[in-house]
Design a protein around this nucleic acid. Structure first.
Lengths: 246, 246
DNA sequence: TCTTGCCTCTCACGTAACGTGAGGTCGTAA
DNA sequence: TTACGACCTCACGTTACGTGAGAGGCAAGA
């Protein structure tokens, strides 16, 4: 009889759980040793170890101690229901983490090789992405992602470098009150439309969403050098181009 | 000036975070309102809202408040490193959850339709699975899984029903000291080998691992009615079959 | 002016599942 | 007898807040 009683330390060594964990399981009423020595030391019998084994099995499957307690306590619980519930929870969590992972990776890829990225710049990129998720619908984001895949990363980077430069030139002409029909402005407007086409693929809804974003988020607009005031100026340049074509 | 100062409730409504969260951010020094009213009410300025926005962005990417504090505080941190670290952590978590999910699903499928599964039986199944993962190597488990796919669920269930029955019959003959060469025992031994073949696919290592499991885990053995003492008895039956063939 | 109702404040406990000491007791071997 | 290891209980720390409790502030109506 004596040989079939184990003390906490022995149980801990054999099963791999910590002594504190065994204390904790007793405290919450999940697993109490069936005996105590005169000095108050815990003595675990074989049946206690069996219960511990079951607890560990259920724990490994990700159940909470509360749920385990209910499973082991009551005879009437429905395993299918419990598992289905748990499975659903897990699926949700996994999907969430996967989305999170994808977002993180897309940011990491954006700055894959560059070494001199400042924290400032980095956080702005993150903000830009959360903004995108705020202003574009799920389908639009998918479409953008798809077109990104077609263009390839080098092309994307080139455009991202060219865009602020183009914006600055447009701003200069606009500030100088250059006639929208001027060849320089015409060239800028042509390039603007090309880049816009590369971004939106001609999807009007995407262009609208982008415009809304630039209007509502001065931070994002500043990052790319976009000013809503440029929109009508370029529009006038486009109108002038059409007029000269006829 | 006055109009660009917001109180906690207003900030909470605008940004979607709770008042308590704003209190908390101040308590841990992550975001303190740049002013207080005479009565001690928090007054957030535009720059505070900007910082809050950055905090929210980073939070959405799954960073801890500690990490966010460091990112926003120091200029010298390496975004790539932080992201790579985080990405690694996420991948690990996802893989873990995926494995967990698969295990859960395999258990759920085992008892998909059955309605009268007792908690006892259910927990035993879970224990059996954790035992499998303890005694079989990763490759062996994959091989078993593959063979399970080939056999199909109905076949599996049939075998699982037949196995305890077969064990009981063998036990009876063994207890009666029936000659291993007796036709009845020969028939049982033949069926034993067939089922074993269906399980192991002739893989000796898998058979060895299973034997070790049955020897070390009386609980699992009891569940399937297996007794290590049967092994040599069946072996003698097989030997007798061979001898009679020559 | 007083009350009403809606802020806001600080303080403080609760969450899940233990980890990590602190300070004291028990058992046994040298 | 003393040293050492195993054990005991108590209690705080962890994450990122949620949820009150009790008290004070602020504008509007009676």
């Amino acid at each position: 009889m004596r040989s079939s009683l184990w003390r906490v330390g022995e149980v801990a060594k054999r099963t791999g759980v910590s002594v504190r964990t065994l204390h904790w399981y007793e405290e919450i009423g999940l697993l109490s040793p069936s005996q105590r020595s005169e000095a108050g030391h815990r003595l675990y019998a074989a049946e206690d170890l069996g219960r511990l084994q079951r607890i560990r099995s259920l724990r490994q499957l990700g159940f909470s101690l509360d749920e385990i307690g209910e499973c082991l306590g009551k005879r009437k619980f429905s395993p299918q229901q419990v598992i289905a519930l748990h499975l659903g929870r897990l699926d949700e969590e996994i999907a969430l983490q996967q989305r999170l992972r994808d977002r993180l990776e897309s940011i990491a890829m954006r700055y894959g090789a560059a070494e001199d990225v400042s924290a400032e710049e980095f956080i702005q990129a993150i903000e830009a992405m959360t903004m995108m998720e705020k202003y574009f619908t799920q389908e639009q984001l998918q479409e953008l992602e798809q077109r990104k895949g077609i263009l390839g990363p080098d092309e994307i980077k080139a455009v991202e470098l060219e865009w602020p430069d183009l914006m600055a030139r447009v701003r200069t002409e606009m500030d100088n009150n250059t006639d929208p029909a001027d060849p320089r402005v015409q060239a800028l407007a042509k390039r603007w439309m090309e880049l816009l086409q590369a971004f939106s693929g001609g999807n009007r809804e995407i262009e609208k969403s982008a415009a809304t974003m630039y209007r509502n988020e001065p931070g994002v607009a500043r990052q790319y050098g976009v000013d809503p005031k440029m929109f009508p100026y370029i529009q006038r340049a486009m109108d002038a181009a059409k007029a000269s074509q006829t």
